[in-house]
Design a protein around this nucleic acid. Structure first.
Lengths: 144, 144
DNA sequence: TTGCTTGCAAAGCATTTGCAAGAGC
DNA sequence: GCTCTTGCAAATGCTTTGCAAGCAA
């Protein structure tokens, strides 16, 4: 159960106050934050932090496989540091809220040889969609 | 095996030359087109067609459930008219190419009650990711 | 007729980029 | 010291929107 910062250090990631602030914000459990939220949070520690740096940093973390980027139609990307615990997502298509889930039967999910189109596969991602209870209560027929 | 146009007519969808052109372009099999490609194609029939109309029309078709919107990071949305045949996607994360696939074991995929977070579910979407053979050949380590 | 559709151009938004100044190691 | 990182602001690219004119039913 090493912290995100430890793992980054171990990879020889160049550490700066800005990067530390971003990594610290993300290193919670089951958090999904937008770049904007990360910026706001990290600025509490490093006020001069720029959004460009936040985007750069987030993209690096994603490329390193330390953070997942969750894209939901009509909203900004959400960043999800809960890697390691292989999980999938449940998305409300009214408000865009995302939960982490662990579907049953996922280990038996596969692609027949003749459907692989010559790909070398490396990831399967499952997304459940529906309406969350809050949106359902306020009679959400809203699509956007 | 009704055509897309027939289904739209059946729903009392107001038909215009622009909409007909868009629907016709999409009504192939296993096609995935970007808004730009739809615009280009439909303009061969209706040259004065505007991109705003294409977006409006595509969004309507998506809302009606006649077309799927496939969002791939770093690229424009792709529109997929192959609804009816419940399928899922295989995406090359180097070039963004999307194939339709029918995973094995998908019918047994489920979310335990305690992971539903009070949602009323209505969709499961599976996305396989990997590198396609063309990208692999030209030594694609490229992420973008 | 009558309200839905269209085209145009401008706006919107999230994200990226160029470049010079500023740190980490 | 050398290179990577940052901030700023402008640019980018996709998508949406406001509004007046046009058209389907």
């Amino acid at each position: 159960v090493t912290s995100l910062l430890d793992r980054l250090r171990a990879q020889g990631w160049r550490l700066t106050p800005q990067r530390r602030a971003v990594a610290t914000i993300l290193d919670g459990e089951h958090v999904h934050l937008t770049a904007e939220q990360v910026l706001a949070g990290a600025r509490r520690v490093v006020p001069e932090l720029s959004q460009a740096t936040v985007y750069n940093t987030l993209n690096e973390l994603v490329a390193m496989g330390e953070v997942n980027e969750v894209r939901v139609k009509g909203t900004a990307s959400q960043y999800d540091p809960n890697v390691g615990d292989r999980h999938h997502h449940l998305v409300c298509h009214s408000c865009g809220m995302v939960y982490d889930v662990h579907p049953v039967g996922i280990d038996d999910l596969a692609l027949a040889r003749d459907e692989r189109h010559g790909f070398s596969l490396d990831e399967v991602e499952v997304t459940f969609r529906g309406i969350c209870s809050s949106c359902a209560e306020r009679g959400a027929a809203t699509r956007a």
